Simulated assay, not measured.
Amino acid sequence: MSGKEQSDYSDFDNTWVYRGRPLAKQQRKELISSINPSVCHVHGISAEKEHEALLFNLVRIMNTGSEVSMLNGEISPPKDQPTIKEARKKIKKAADKLSAAHEMIHDFIGDETVRALLERSDGWEDISVLLPVLGRVATLLDEAANYKGNQGARRNPDWIKNFCDECNNFWKLHMPGGTSLVYQNEQESPVSEWVYHLFKELGEFTELNPKDSVLFTHAKRPNR
């Protein structure tokens, strides 16, 4: 081990994040003491400290969620965001509950005993204003839940390009051989094997577990 000052990255709370939160001490320890030495050993990487910093940066990159864009006038969620079907299901569930609540309140609001109880609450008179709003919100949600959208193939998450670029930059600086990522042949290049190893290891670490196709399709079409 070199004489460089060691760091557990605990002072990088605004940079090394995990799902919007700073990495916990145990997570930093796993990256530093387990994942980094293991990957370096398998792939013959001597620049362990630089590789350690790379791992933290890759975790940050992977936890940067992609934006949902429009494609040909239709909403187009990338692979790391919920599908339209999943989003519709969540919205529909909320719409149904709000609609049921609106109907229930509307039905019992004329009950004198209910009214007597409500009058004990501060601002009870606002119900006549809020009730129509509740119904309108339920209607808006129901309309959104009926959106069909584009059900075709989804694009790769935005982070995969930055992930591969950072890996290529590290390999250029610290390892011999080319940096082209090829996953079409049985005999993969050293850099391809290493990037795939990181992709799987950090995919499990972040609990994102992206499909192999995310990496493979980017490797074939790196500019897309």
Rank of each mutant, 00 (worst) to 15 (best):
A53P: 01
E52V: 05
V59Q: 05
M62G: 02
H43R: 04
V39I: 15
H43Y: 11
S46Y: 08
T64E: 11
G65Y: 12
L55Q: 01
N57K: 15
S38R: 15
M62P: 00
E50T: 02
N36A: 15
L58N: 05
I61E: 09
K49M: 10
N36M: 09
K49E: 15
S38Q: 15
E48P: 01
L58G: 08
R60E: 13
I35Y: 01
T64G: 12
S34L: 12
S66Y: 08
R60W: 11
P37N: 09
I35F: 03
I45F: 05
S38K: 15
S46K: 11
K49W: 08
I45C: 01
V42F: 00
T64S: 11
C40W: 06
V42C: 05
H41G: 07
K49D: 12
T64Y: 09
I61F: 06
N36G: 05
H51A: 10
V42M: 00
S46M: 09
S34W: 08
A53H: 13
H41C: 07
L54Q: 01
V39Q: 09
I35T: 03
N57M: 13
H43G: 05
H41Q: 15
V59S: 07
L54Y: 04
A53Q: 15
N36D: 08
G65I: 13
C40L: 06
S33N: 14
P37L: 08
S34E: 14
H41S: 14
L54D: 02
P37C: 08
A53R: 15
E50L: 02
K49R: 13
K49I: 06
L58Q: 06
G65D: 15
F56G: 05
E52L: 14
L54R: 00
C40Q: 06
H41T: 12
I35C: 04
I45L: 00
A53V: 10
H51M: 15
I35Q: 05
E48R: 13
I35A: 06
P37V: 07
L58P: 03
M62I: 10
P37M: 08
F56Y: 06
S66M: 07
I45V: 11
G44E: 13
I32P: 03
K49G: 01
E50S: 07
E52F: 01
A47E: 12
S38L: 12
S46D: 15
S66Q: 07
L58S: 07
F56V: 05
P37S: 09
A47F: 03
S34R: 13
K49S: 11
H41M: 11
I61A: 06
H41V: 05
N63W: 03
L54F: 00
F56K: 00
S38C: 11
V59L: 07
N57I: 06
I32A: 01
I35R: 02
E50N: 11
S66V: 07
E48K: 11
G65C: 10
S66R: 08
N36P: 04
I45P: 04
G65R: 13
A47L: 02
F56C: 07
S38H: 14
L55T: 04
G44I: 03
S38V: 03
K49T: 10
I35G: 00
H51R: 02
F56H: 12
M62C: 06
E50R: 08
I45G: 01
L54P: 08
A47G: 01
V42L: 09
I32H: 07
C40F: 02
S46V: 09
A53Y: 10
K49Y: 09
F56W: 03
C40I: 00
I61N: 00
V39R: 03
